[in-house]
């Protein structure tokens, strides 16, 4: 299939398999980790904010109690 005669040929890349696959592995790891972190950031911040609002509300309440 394609340019290569066999799957072994494809992995071997005419003796340059190490360089080619190392490059693709590094790019894959970098792009996927960046993507996952970005995707989680909105979710993580929603969680962070819900805690922040709860604490802010609690602070307001205790302050109101102190004043009275």
């Amino acid at each position: 299939m394609g340019y290569f005669d066999s799957f072994n040929d494809f992995i071997h890349m005419g003796g340059h398999g190490f360089y080619v696959w190392l490059c693709y592995a590094i790019v894959f790891i970098g792009m996927v980790s960046q993507f996952v972190l970005a995707k989680l950031s909105a979710k993580k911040n929603i969680k962070l904010l819900s805690q922040y609002y709860r604490r802010a509300a609690a602070r307001k309440k205790s302050q109101a109690n102190n004043d009275s």
Binding site: A38, S41, L49
Partner: peptide, 26 residues
């Protein structure tokens, strides 16, 4: 796509006093 994900996370943090963010979180 990655930028949009990041921007959305950043908007939430910076607009935490806005009523639409409070509603979204709730």
């Amino acid at each position: 796509v990655t930028l949009f994900h990041k921007i959305r996370g950043e908007i939430l943090l910076r607009e935490k006093q806005a009523s639409w963010v409070k509603k979204l979180v709730a």
